[in-house]
């Protein structure tokens, strides 16, 4: 598969906070979700990818070009939606569109109009006069329509109502259909992660905990409910226990152990993504 972005051993210090070192490869056709608590470095990583912040060590390539290259052609391959738009307040949606569209050779006006219609975005109102949710929708429409091969979204569905979230997911799914583009998005929304993400890049206070394929994560932890009280000795791979149930990351070894000790299972299942992430982030 074609590599669209490559991050190698990137590190960035901001006051007391250090992000990385971190590696990330973004392949065409994939959606990567950046997940982690508030202040874990998700937005910083996106800024580094846009060269809006400079890394202390390591390097980032977009479309095979280092982002600190004086030649800035790579910028036409990537579109970024930050959490807040600076300098947009005085302009109407129409003025913003007329300003942004010519900068991107692949600008898709049809898609832009579809988004404006689907989200009922008023183009004649000044940005500052729009609600928070509407501002987010307009800036998404102005970002997605650039039709670049990489889309960076910083919490795209924050402040959005349920039906708008569903619509956006539909648009992004269709946008990804060709298999030649990629999305990297930071998010706190479980739906974004379960329905859109292929890979999860997990960050905790700037520490990179790993990037996992979703299926790996969906089968990472197993929960068992036992018939009788649990023995005091921990089970293989045990990560937590409560009452007659426990969680392990070594299901095979656990089941061999249970067999050998003739302990009866009442039920068992994988942990869902939300619970798995919580465990990973509290380790």
């Amino acid at each position: 598969m074609k590599t669209l972005a490559e991050i190698r051993q990137i590190q960035k210090q901001v006051d007391e906070f250090t992000l990385g070192p971190l590696d990330l490869t973004v392949e065409a056709g994939t959606i990567t979700a950046l997940v982690g608590n508030n202040g874990s470095g998700k937005s910083t990583l996106l800024k580094l990818m846009m060269n809006l912040a400079k890394a202390d060590t390591g390097n980032i390539k977009i479309a095979n070009t280092l982002v600190n290259d004086p030649e800035e052609e790579w910028k036409t391959h990537i579109a970024y939606q930050p959490q807040t738009m600076i300098g947009w307040d005085a302009f109407t949606g129409k003025a913003l569109r007329d300003f942004i569209a010519p900068l991107y050779p692949a600008w898709d006006d049809e898609l832009f109009n579809q988004l404006i219609q689907a989200f009922s975005i008023p183009l004649n109102k000044r940005f500052a006069k729009l609600s928070q949710g509407m501002q987010r929708k307009l800036s998404l429409a102005l970002t997605i329509s650039r039709n670049t091969s990489i889309l960076l979204l910083d919490e795209p569905t924050a402040f959005m109502d349920i039906s708008s979230k569903q619509k956006l997911m539909q648009f992004l799914t269709e946008w990804m259909e060709s298999g030649e583009r990629a999305i990297v998005m930071s998010t706190h929304q479980v739906d974004d992660i379960t329905k859109l993400a292929d890979y999860l890049c997990v960050l905790q206070d700037g520490n990179w905990k790993g990037t996992y394929e979703k299926e790996t994560m969906q089968h990472m932890y197993w929960q068992y409910w036992m018939r009788d009280a649990l023995p005091s000795e921990p089970f293989p791979g045990e990560v937590s226990r409560e009452g007659k149930q426990f969680i392990t990351n070594k299901p095979e070894a656990t089941e061999t152990y249970l067999d050998e000790h003739q302990l009866s299972i009442v039920n068992q299942q994988t942990l869902d993504l939300e619970a798995t992430l919580t465990l990973l982030l509290n380790k």
């Binding site: 959606i31 799914t173 990804m176 292929d198 979703k214």
Partner: peptide, 16 residues
């Protein structure tokens, strides 16, 4: 269904 659409419906990844 396309790979991307089925991944969304089944809440799994395009890789799977």
């Amino acid at each position: 269904p396309s790979i991307r659409l089925l991944a969304k419906d089944l809440e799994t990844s395009v890789i799977t």
